[in-house]
Design a protein around this nucleic acid. Structure first.
Lengths: 106, 106
DNA sequence: ATATTTGGTCAACTATAATTTACTTATACA
DNA sequence: TGTATAAGTAAATTATAGTTGACCAAATAT
C-alpha cells in the first residue's frame, strides 16, 4: 500500500495514508484519498469526525471509499472540517472576465 | 441581475448568466452559478440536461440554486457533462510530494 | 500475549432526496 | 397582442441515503 507510518511525540503510532497529488485531474477516489490523508495526518479517528460533525461512521467510510452516492452536504462538511476545499475548473481554452467578448468561453 | 443577453445565429435569444470568477474561494453558490452559466452558454435547456443525464428537472434546479442537499453523484454527472471539474485545495502552508518530510503537510 | 482502539461491515429502521405529474410564472418572438 | 418555449414550484409517491447498534477484524498499545 501507499501507506506510511509516523511516530509522533504525542499519541500513538498511526497509519497515515499519503496525500495524493492535488495537481492531478479530479476524481472521486482522489477526493477520498485526500480526505483520509488529511484526517489521519491530523490524528483524528472516524469517531472524532463523526462526533464533531454529527455524521455517522458508515457514511464517513462511504466518503473515504470514494462512494459518490452521498450527500454533497456531508462531503463539504467533512472537507471544511479537515481544511480541504474545491476550486472550480472549466475546460474552456481561455477566458477573460475583464471584457465581455462575443467568443464562447465554454 | 448579472445576466446578459446574447443573440445567436441559430435558436432564440436566451438569458445567459455570467460565468463566476473561478479564482474566488469555493462556495456552493459559486458552483451553482458556474453550472448555470455553462449550461446557458452552451444553449442547453434544463430539459436537455435532464434527458441526457436522466436527472429530473427539479433536481437540476436544486443544483443550480446552490442547494447542497443533493447527491454528489448527480452534481458530478452534471459537471462532467458541461465540462466543469473540481480541483482539490488543501489549506496547508506548503508541501512537497518529492520527499517525505517529517513536517506536517496538513 | 493480552487488551484496547480503530476501521470496516451488516441488517433493520428512519429520514429524506429524487421522481412524476401538473401547474404557474417568466421570457422570447411572431 | 397572443403563442411557444423555458424556468421554476408544489404535492404525492418512490427510491435510497443515513442512522443505530451490534459485530468482526486489524492495527496499536500495555
Amino acid at each position: 500500500m501507499s501507506d506510511t507510518l509516523s511516530k509522533k511525540t504525542l499519541g500513538r503510532v498511526v497509519k497515515r495514508t499519503e496525500m495524493p497529488e492535488l495537481s492531478k485531474p479530479f476524481s472521486p477516489m482522489q477526493l477520498a484519498k485526500a480526505i483520509t490523508a488529511k484526517r489521519t495526518g491530523m490524528k483524528l479517528t472516524l469517531m472524532d469526525v463523526s462526533q464533531a460533525l454529527a455524521i455517522s461512521k458508515p457514511t464517513l467510510i462511504k466518503i473515504e471509499k470514494g462512494d459518490v452516492t452521498v450527500q454533497l452536504h456531508n462531503v463539504l462538511k467533512v472537507m471544511e472540517y479537515l481544511g480541504l476545499s474545491f476550486s472550480l475548473v472549466s475546460d474552456d481554452i481561455a477566458h477573460s472576465n475583464e471584457e465581455v467578448s462575443d467568443e464562447q468561453w465554454y
